[in-house]
Simulated scan of single mutants.
Amino acid sequence: MQRAVLKLCCGISYPHVRSMAGLQRAALAAFGQEISVHLQRRPAWSPPRWTRHQQDEKTQPAEQRTTALADEDVFYLRRGQEALHEALEIVESKDGWKPEMAEKNGDVIYSKVLLGNRKVFRLEAELDASPEELHDILFVRVEEMHEWNPNIRRIRVLKHVGGNTMVTHEVSAETAGNLIGQRDFLSVRHWSKSESCVYLGGAATQFESLPPQPGFVRAEDGPTCIVLQPLQDHPDRTHFIWLLNMDVKGWLPQSLVNKALPRAQADFTKHLRLHLTAQKPENRR
């Protein structure tokens, strides 16, 4: 039954897929493969149980607990896929983008105002690393990010869903010059790959055992994404596109937030470049 529904959905969506831009179409093809594999391995989806979870664990038979866990996994998988797809739609849109700032090294940041008056930022840069290397740093070894980015206090993976989705808790650092102040984030992160690109996406989510923490303002990401595309003549270098879409919460003036976010993107890219340089074999001796 699930396969029949999937085929019907694919047939209905075909005219829309033909009109999609390149990044969206490639990412959607990768999503389709993930969903097909998941339908073969998992039971039908139902909303995750955000309440009475611990009590249910004590009283339900083991088979029912396994099914509930599978349902929760599918929730996070779909949340990550949807976030990545929505973020790519924003990145691929042609209208409304305006130059926000340009760095001497060639990095450029554009901004756009979405419905609801939220301003998002798109950074474009070239990095001296392959998409696979950057995927390893930014996703696989995400818990090590605080070691090279002083603006992050810690990132902890709370849950893995297969090899391409995870739930993380991130706490920003208390650093001088941080206009926004310390925040924490609870996010689902998802990655996908086409023949030429690696896509990293994410969005705010819920996790029952980690409600908002005292002393922190819980900000919300997403949908957001990073696109890693090898340069045509230099496959060991990457065209890096980063959509930053964040609601920092709190009582900060929006003008201050709109000034701080693109600066945070530029700082992140600077620290990432320093880390890539330090990782080169000739610099480890």
Rank of each mutant, 00 (worst) to 15 (best):
E103T: 10
Y110H: 14
A176H: 01
S196D: 06
W45P: 04
Y14T: 06
I226D: 03
S194T: 11
L274M: 10
I155M: 05
Q265R: 01
R41F: 03
Y76N: 05
G163L: 08
D236K: 11
H234L: 07
L252H: 01
C225R: 02
A44M: 14
V142P: 01
H85Y: 09
V140G: 01
A264K: 02
P223K: 12
N149V: 00
R52W: 04
R65G: 04
G22E: 11
A260K: 04
S172K: 03
L256E: 11
S209N: 15
A87K: 02
M1G: 13
V188L: 00
Q229R: 14
Q24M: 10
P99V: 15
Y76H: 09
S130F: 01
Q60G: 04
P15L: 10
C225A: 11
V198D: 02
A4I: 13
A204T: 15
N258Q: 13
L138H: 00
K259T: 10
Y76R: 02
A266S: 13
S255F: 05
E126F: 03
G11F: 02
V217H: 07
Q2F: 04
Q24T: 11
H38I: 03
L84R: 11
R49S: 13
L115R: 15
L210E: 07
L134P: 08
L114Q: 10
R189V: 14
P48I: 07
I155P: 03
D71T: 15
P230D: 12
M20V: 06
G177S: 01
Q265P: 05
E89T: 07
Q229Y: 01
Q232F: 04
F268G: 00
K7A: 05
H271F: 15
D233E: 15
L115W: 10
E63Q: 05
D221H: 14
H275Q: 13
K193Y: 03
T277W: 07
M20Q: 13
L210Y: 08
E34D: 14
S36P: 01
I241N: 07
A219V: 13
Y110T: 08
G116T: 12
Q81M: 11
A29G: 14
G116W: 10
A204Y: 05
L256D: 08
V142E: 07
P211W: 03
V74N: 08
K94T: 14
W191G: 00
V157D: 02
D71Y: 01
E72S: 06
R218I: 06
V171Y: 01
T66F: 10
N178A: 06
K259H: 15
